[in-house]
Design a protein around this nucleic acid. Structure first.
Lengths: 124, 124
DNA sequence: TACCTATTGATAACAATTATCATTAACGGT
DNA sequence: ACCGTTAATGATAATTGTTATCAATAGGTA
C-alpha cells in the first residue's frame, strides 16, 4: 500500500471545510482555499476532497447534479429546496440510527446513510 | 400555464421504466426505448425524464455521479455498493415514515426523502 | 544531504446534461 | 375532417463538472 504524505494543500482544504457550515462544491473550496494558498490547483482540490471522502474524514454528497462536501461526518441529515437549491442541515440523529438499525439486507454491510429531504424552504 | 400533450415518446419511456426493476440513467433508457421507437432522440429522453420527475411520476436519484431514474415512487430506500456501484432496492417503508415524522424543521415542507445506504454488497 | 516517490500544477480529455432551433405533430376549435 | 396554434421533437452544439495525463516538485526516511 502507499503511504500518504501530509501536504499543506490537504491541511488547508480540511481546515477550511471545518471552519464553515455550508456544503461547497470543489470549485467553491478551490476559490476559498486559494485566498490562503494562491498557487493551489483545482485538480489538487478535487484529488484531496476525493481522498478525504474515501477515507471517511469528510462527506461527499450528491446534490443538485454535483458533489458537495461536508466536514461534519456525524450522523445528521440534509434538506434540499427543490426550488432554490438551498441545502439545510438537520440534526435528528435518531433518524440515522433508526435507518441503520432497520437495514437488515442480506449481505449488504453499511455503517453510513445519506438522508436527503426534498421540499420547499421557508423562502420559496 | 402551458398544457402538456401526450406523446408516444413520453408514454414509451414511462412504460419502459415501469417494466424494469433497475435504476437506469438517461442513456440506458434511451438505448432501451429506441428498440421500440427507433427515431427517438436522446434529448427527448432527457426532457421527458426530467418532466416526469418534476411532476412526481418517477424518481430522479443522484447516484455515482449521474442521475438514475426509478418508476417506483413509493417510500422505499436504496443501497449503493461503494466498490462496484451496484444499486439495490430496500423495502423498509418504516424508515421513510419515521424520517418524515421526525422532520420538524422550521419552515421546511417536505413529503419526500431520499435514503441511500453506502457500503459493500455481498459480492464485494 | 540524498534518494524515492507521493503529490502537485497546468491543462487536456471526458462524460453527463442542457441549450438551441428549425421541423413536426398533438389537440381544441371550426 | 380540416385548420391553426404551439408543445414537443430530433439533431447537434454548447456547457459544465470531473477525471486523466505528465513533467516538475516536495514530503519523509535513511
Amino acid at each position: 500500500m502507499q503511504k500518504t504524505r501530509t501536504t499543506n494543500q490537504r491541511l488547508k482544504i480540511l481546515e477550511h471545510l471545518r471552519n464553515i457550515r455550508t456544503h461547497p462544491n470543489a470549485e467553491a473550496v478551490f476559490k476559498s482555499v486559494r485566498k490562503d494558498l494562491p498557487v493551489i490547483s483545482l485538480a489538487t482540490v478535487y484529488r484531496n476532497l476525493n481522498m478525504l471522502a474515501s477515507q471517511g474524514t469528510i462527506l461527499k454528497l450528491e446534490i443538485n447534479g454535483e458533489y458537495k462536501f461536508d466536514a461534519n461526518t456525524c450522523g445528521h441529515q440534509h434538506a434540499v429546496c427543490t426550488n432554490c437549491g438551498k441545502i439545510i442541515d438537520i440534526f435528528e440523529p435518531a433518524i440515522t440510527t433508526y435507518a441503520l438499525k432497520k437495514l437488515t439486507l442480506n449481505g449488504f454491510k453499511s455503517g453510513c446513510v445519506d438522508i436527503i429531504f426534498k421540499g420547499r424552504c421557508d423562502k420559496c
